[in-house]
Design a protein around this nucleic acid. Sequence first.
DNA 1: ACCTGAACACCGTTCAAGT
DNA 2: ACCTGAACACCGTTCAAGT
Lengths: 219, 219
Amino acid sequence: MPQPSAQRGRPPRISRAEIIETARRIVDAEGVDRLTMRRLAKEVGSTPMALYHHVRDKEQLLVLLLDDYAARMAREPELPADPRERIVVTAAAIRETLAACPWIAEVLTADDLLGRSALWFVERILDGLEECGLSPERAVHGYRAIWYYTAGEIIVRAAAARRRAGDERPTYRERVFAGIDPGELPRLAAVADRWAELTAQDTYLDGLRALVDGLVGAP
Amino acid sequence: MPQPSAQRGRPPRISRAEIIETARRIVDAEGVDRLTMRRLAKEVGSTPMALYHHVRDKEQLLVLLLDDYAARMAREPELPADPRERIVVTAAAIRETLAACPWIAEVLTADDLLGRSALWFVERILDGLEECGLSPERAVHGYRAIWYYTAGEIIVRAAAARRRAGDERPTYRERVFAGIDPGELPRLAAVADRWAELTAQDTYLDGLRALVDGLVGAP
DNA sequence: ACCTGAACACCGTTCAAGT
DNA sequence: ACCTGAACACCGTTCAAGT
């Protein structure tokens, strides 16, 4: 936040907003791995070190970028009356937005809370949980559980997708599964050949509903 | 796995086991960021390129390292009779082991399934869920939900710890929370000043129990 | 206040050659 | 078969200087 009143010194040639916008373009087009300070500087028409005048370091840049994504998140306009369903709809909305940018994993590990533009997400879930009868404290803990579940789903799924997009070499999982001893691990052996198919199914909502039911006490 | 029958060529000076053992020492002592191929080669008394004769690349090395950790995981010797509680105990055991090495986050995003040495974890959870009446298919989905929740908890908590260990600068969260408008976000505003305290509490087991209850149907 | 150039101290990996 | 040395093509960031 520059002070517009202090109109002294050299006029800025690049802005933080411009930096983030360019970073977003690079990440969307080529993935987070290709976002380097040098590359970003070139794209923005400046030098690497000029960037450090607008962001502290690369980690902060990524957090700002995540916040930028969160700000674009679609808000479900009409909410169901049932608080339980309201929680589900909200968590599913954030998950959908974040799942669209798989680079998020690296940033999630950098900061667990989304920026101010995503606080409405937290608010809604707290609200739903409290309306279900939870105390404010238990509502916060419930929110954390939902966030763990959602963040885990996003990260694990993004990692699986990245692996799938990679080369053709038989996955580590396939080799491990090929060596399962049915005597030792009968349950696993029974589903081993359907494992890929079963885990490819999107069951986020089922698990989320189970978690919410468990948190608020089943009806 | 080298073929012991093919006893030709130059005898190996370093082994994969030796490489992994040394990598583990470095990671335990200084964190995963300090594990570089160059550093590892030096520590093992060799050159960077010699490593590539025993592991495909750095990513594979990390997966092998994770498997090494998983192999050392304590198996709960006596299991409770209640299948629901058996699931909880198993998931908590793996979480405890993995949480001890926060570098795991980077590797979890590289491969979602633990190596063959941790399959007993999957087996036990499938077994518990099926004994609760779930079909094999639903048991796999239930396991995935538990894994999402657990992986998310580990990653988010490890990130928070890393941040705490860092410098003193007021966290992003604090700055965001300071700007909350109680009119717009009443639930959040009501817990804002207790947020740090509430989220520092370890509520993994509460959330896990809620999830398991929700998955198998409350009693 | 804002930007630049050069430099520091690194990376993972390929390639050609040695034993 | 296993290992080495030199090189490639990069990184993020500090520092001193310019306008």
